[in-house]
């Protein structure tokens, strides 16, 4: 318990609140790297997942869809730390190799949830939409996407939380952000610094979780919430 109290005292030291190793700067760094990785993940995985789910018709599309889901599930087995270290050891540039594993690990939940979310939309719902004269694009944006939104948001949330925690691990190979406190504290055997970093990472992960809960309330139609709330 004393150790934890020490960590809390660490937050009170004025040195923690200014300069490049200060908390505000580290939080900003962490948010920047995580945000960048999340943005790229979403840009790659979301359109692909939605499109694959939408095109479901035909043998080729379903085989491709199955392959994507299998590959994405397989990606769960990739060890984060090993990937980050290998990327850094094998390449010269600094930021890209560290962000790359973050993105690779965050793509699966976004891709799979977008794909299954759209693919699981009841066939009669699509039938009604088309029968009323919606074009393919209108069916996707006006019906399939909003109906799949709860699952899509869960995938995005999983990815975001995962990126925030993987970014902390990536401090081991030199990435800035909150993981610095954890890694540097461990190296210097200063538990209060390490624990302070851990508390900040947990707080950030919860903040991301809370942000998505808010987004869910704002974006998901009340007509759908009822059925998913069980």
């Amino acid at each position: 318990m004393n150790a934890i109290l020490e960590a809390l005292r660490w937050f009170g030291e004025p040195a923690q609140w200014s300069g490049p190793d200060g908390i505000p700067h580290r939080v900003a760094e962490h948010l920047l790297y995580s945000g960048l990785a999340f943005l790229i993940t979403v840009l790659v995985a979301l359109p692909l997942g939605l499109l694959l789910g939408h095109v479901r018709r035909g043998r080729a599309a379903s085989v491709l869809g199955f392959a994507v889901v299998a590959a994405a599930n397989g990606a769960r087995a990739l060890p984060t730390l090993g990937l980050v270290i290998l990327a850094v050891i094998l390449t010269a540039s600094e930021l890209v190799p560290i962000l790359l594993p973050l993105i690779v690990l965050a793509i699966p939940p976004v891709l799979v949830n977008a794909y299954t979310g759209v693919q699981q939309v009841e066939p009669w719902l699509r039938d009604a939409a088309e029968g009323m004269g919606m074009t393919g694009r209108q069916v996707l944006w006006r019906v399939e996407f909003p109906v799949a939104l709860p699952l899509v948001l869960l995938g995005l949330r999983t990815a975001a939380v995962q990126i925030v925690s993987t970014a902390a691990i990536a401090a081991f190979v030199g990435l800035g952000g909150l993981g610095r406190y954890i890694i540097d504290g461990l190296a210097r055997q200063e538990y209060d610094t390490t624990a302070g970093g851990a508390i900040l990472v947990i707080a950030l992960a919860f903040a991301v979780q809370a942000a998505f809960a808010l987004l869910y309330r704002l974006a998901v139609s009340p007509g759908l919430r009822r059925s998913t709330a069980s």
Partner: peptide, 23 residues
């Protein structure tokens, strides 16, 4: 053109096919 054709013809199906996310 199918969408144009369909917008001019009412369509009712067995499960009603109402959009769950819209009032």
């Amino acid at each position: 053109d199918p969408p144009t054709l369909r917008r001019g013809i009412g369509y009712v199906i067995q499960q009603a096919g109402l959009f769950p996310h819209r009032t």
